[in-house]
Simulated assay, not measured.
Amino acid sequence: MKLLVIYTYPNHKSLNYAFLQKVIKGSNENPNIKELQILDLYEENFNPLLVFNEQKRRRDMHTDPHIEKYRQQIKWADKIVFIYPIWWGRPPAMLLGYIDQLFASNFAYQDQKGLLPKGLLKGKSVICISTMKGPTHYPFLWLKNAHKMLMKRALFNFVGIKKVKFFEFGNMESPKGKQMKKLEKIDTYFQRLHH
């Protein structure tokens, strides 16, 4: 199994970074995970801004040479792990900018007759590890599950990825947030991951 981990947080002295370290540790102790790549979007200085003009057309985004290496990473991976905070009920703009560019027509999906396109990323799976200041059930109860709907239905299912696992960790700025327990949960999960 080949794992691509996409980390989106601007600070390495953070809880999000601690989750990244646990993903790496657990994966390195798992014989089922043969290869691991880490993409740190902030460290990479990834440019999340979309630019469309006479030279750069939206319909050509799937062949844009500036993001070819990121397309190759997605093609290479069996499983993609996203680590990010939930801000205003959704992932950070940096990650959404990556998604806007990488999950493009004729790379991630292909338009066809009917309601839904043909997903071109079938066979891959996704794990989303997200942190938030508010309580764990806030996105579900107050926002009607908007975060999961956005990531699973509007994005991953649309491009053919049916298997999506969520870890939504709330109260992460509270002294009673059980941060160590949640970090250990991620470590153990990745040690035991088998498909």
Rank of each mutant, 00 (worst) to 15 (best):
F52T: 09
K165S: 05
Q112C: 08
D111Q: 10
L155F: 12
P31S: 15
G134I: 07
H12K: 15
F140P: 00
G89I: 08
P85I: 12
M180V: 09
W142T: 14
T63M: 06
I24H: 03
W76F: 10
G123H: 07
L115M: 14
Y7I: 12
M172D: 02
Y189Q: 06
L49I: 11
I86G: 06
L49E: 06
V164H: 02
N30R: 02
G89D: 04
R192V: 00
Q55E: 15
T131V: 09
A77Y: 12
C128E: 03
L3T: 11
N157M: 00
L3N: 01
K181G: 07
F103I: 08
L115K: 12
M180F: 06
Y42T: 03
R58M: 13
K176D: 04
P65Q: 05
Y7L: 07
R58N: 08
E44Q: 15
K178H: 13
S27C: 09
Q101L: 15
L96V: 13
N171I: 06
I80L: 07
Q21A: 07
Q21K: 14
N45G: 13
E29P: 09
L116A: 13
K162W: 00
Y17E: 09
K163N: 15
F169V: 08
L41V: 13
I161C: 00
I83R: 01
K144Q: 10
K176N: 10
I38T: 13
G119T: 02
I74T: 12
E54C: 11
E35M: 02
N145D: 15
L141M: 11
L4E: 06
Q21E: 14
E29L: 15
K144Y: 06
K144A: 10
T188N: 08
K13E: 14
L96C: 04
L143T: 00
P85L: 11
S105F: 02
V159K: 06
K113L: 03
D187H: 15
F167G: 07
F156Q: 08
N16Y: 03
A108Y: 02
K2T: 10
Y98R: 06
G26N: 04
I99A: 08
Y98D: 05
G177S: 05
I24T: 00
K124A: 02
N53K: 12
I86D: 03
K178L: 15
L50G: 15
I161E: 00
N11W: 11
K144H: 00
P48Q: 05
E35P: 08
Y17A: 13
P31N: 12
Y98I: 14
P10V: 03
K181C: 01
K182T: 04
L15S: 13
F103L: 13
Y9N: 12
M94P: 01
G119S: 01
Q112L: 03
W142F: 00
R90L: 09
E43F: 11
N106R: 14
I6H: 09
L116F: 07
V164L: 05
I6W: 03
K75I: 12
T188E: 03
A108N: 03
N53T: 11
W76S: 07
L120F: 06
L50T: 14
Q112M: 11
N53E: 14
L116E: 08
D40A: 15
E54I: 08
K152F: 00
K69H: 07
K182V: 06
W87Y: 10
T8G: 05
F167C: 03
